[in-house]
Amino acid sequence: MSTEKTERIAVLIDADNTRPSIIDGLLAEIAKYGVASVRRIYGDWTSSMLKGWKEVLLEHSVQPIQQFGYTRGKNATDSAMIIDAMDLLYTGKFDAFCIVSSDSDFTRLASRIRESGLLVYGFGEKKTPAPFVSACDKFIYTEVLSARTSDNEAITRKSTAELRKDTRLVRLLRNAVDSSSDESGWAHLATVGSNIAKQSPEFDPRNYGYSKLGELVGATRLFDLEERKLGDGHSKSIYLHDKREKRKKTPPKSEE
């Protein structure tokens, strides 16, 4: 019998700033991190604007929370979400929170939850302001949760040349490999992934058209990849080595 603890996650969705088409991908992604013990979505359900959400809530057991817009120009939905989040936080029953919105108003909420020692997973569109993204432990852009983007075009897999031109990506990968490497310069892929997540909450190989970190790293052709068998002889792990370091360690050819 497994004794591994399952993380309990409170999922709070801002219906005003989230598309209903992401619900399947959203819940599948959350399942990677734990169990969505609470699933709530906030909005004014008397509005025809939320019709798309009404059609999927029952199917996915998401509880709608009614919030009337009492004052024009003020977002009552945000206030209701923040109040509920703090109430849930104080119960001490959860290991993590999932905040689904592209609104920067949740930046302080994410920071406050993290201050209490809980993980915060953020989900929002690529237009989400940087402060909210940075306030989360991990941030997933909702465009990658389905096979197509919001403008119905497939997410294009970036070529090796395009990846190498992305100086921020290259720097992020190289810094992570350098920080995770042993004395020989090799770094375990899983450790590299953890290091990247700490540097850049919004990093996701799917943003570049690749499903796995190993695929993305291999596509850059900036690193040597090596599969190594684990102690049981059956499982394998991937290790990386910066090709620049290899060249540095290679002695110069003797001149004839």
Results as ranks from 00 to 15, higher is better:
Ile13Thr: 04
Phe132Trp: 07
Phe132Tyr: 11
Ala147Pro: 15
Ser102Phe: 13
Glu245Cys: 15
Leu173Asp: 01
Ala154Gln: 12
Ala154Pro: 11
Ser79Met: 11
Arg174Cys: 06
Phe223Asn: 01
Glu255Ala: 12
Arg157Pro: 08
Lys51Ile: 09
Leu12Trp: 09
Pro131Gly: 06
Tyr239Arg: 06
Leu163Tyr: 10
Asp24Ile: 08
Arg171Lys: 14
Lys236Met: 07
Thr156Gly: 12
Glu143Asn: 13
Met81Ala: 09
Ser134Phe: 10
Ser181Gly: 01
Ser116Val: 01
Lys212Cys: 06
Gly92Met: 03
Asp242Val: 03
Ala130Asn: 14
Lys32His: 14
Ala147Met: 11
Phe139Thr: 00
Leu225Ala: 12
Gly231Ile: 00
Ser134Gly: 13
Ser102Lys: 04
Lys249Asp: 03
Val217Gln: 07
Ile65Pro: 01
Glu245Pro: 07
Pro205Gly: 12
Ile196Ala: 03
Asp105Lys: 00
Ser150Lys: 15
Arg164Val: 02
Ser159Asn: 03
Arg171Gln: 05
Ile22Ser: 09
Ile113Gln: 00
Ala15Phe: 07
Lys126Pro: 13
Met86Gln: 11
Arg168Phe: 11
Ala31Glu: 05
Ile140Asp: 06
Ile83Pro: 02
Ala130Cys: 07
Gly185Thr: 04
Arg157Tyr: 09
Phe68Thr: 01
Pro129Ile: 07
Lys54Gly: 02
Arg148Ser: 05
Ser116Trp: 10
Gly34Phe: 11
Ala85Thr: 01
Val38Gly: 10
Asp95Ala: 13
Ser48Val: 06
Ala190His: 08
Thr128Gly: 09
Val56Cys: 03
Val170Lys: 05
Val56Lys: 02
Tyr42Gln: 02
Pro205Met: 11
Ser79Val: 14
Tyr33Cys: 01
Thr6Pro: 07
Leu172Val: 01
Tyr70Phe: 13
Arg39Phe: 02
Lys212Ala: 09
Arg164His: 13
Asp178Pro: 09
Ile99Ala: 02
Leu169Pro: 03
Gln63Tyr: 15
Asp16Tyr: 08
Ala147Thr: 04
Ile99Val: 14
Arg228Ser: 06
Thr91His: 00
Ala219Tyr: 02
His241Trp: 12
Leu26Trp: 05
Ser134Thr: 06
Arg168Ser: 11
Tyr239Glu: 00
Gln199His: 06
Gly73Tyr: 13
Val217His: 14
Asp242Tyr: 15
Leu145Tyr: 08
Thr167Glu: 02
Ser150Asn: 12
Lys126Phe: 12
Thr71Tyr: 01
Trp45His: 06
Leu12Val: 00
Thr149Glu: 03
Pro201Gln: 11
Val144Gly: 08
Thr142Met: 01
Leu230Cys: 06
Thr3Arg: 10
Gly25Phe: 00
Val170Pro: 08
Lys246Phe: 10
Glu215Leu: 08
Arg221His: 12
Thr156Asn: 12
Asp103Trp: 10
Gln63Met: 09
Val100Met: 02
Leu27Tyr: 12
Leu119Cys: 06
Gly92Asp: 05
Lys248Phe: 15
Arg148Phe: 15
Ile9Cys: 00
Ser200Gln: 09
Ser146Pro: 03
Glu256Met: 12
Ala161Leu: 05
Glu125Pro: 02
Asp224Tyr: 15
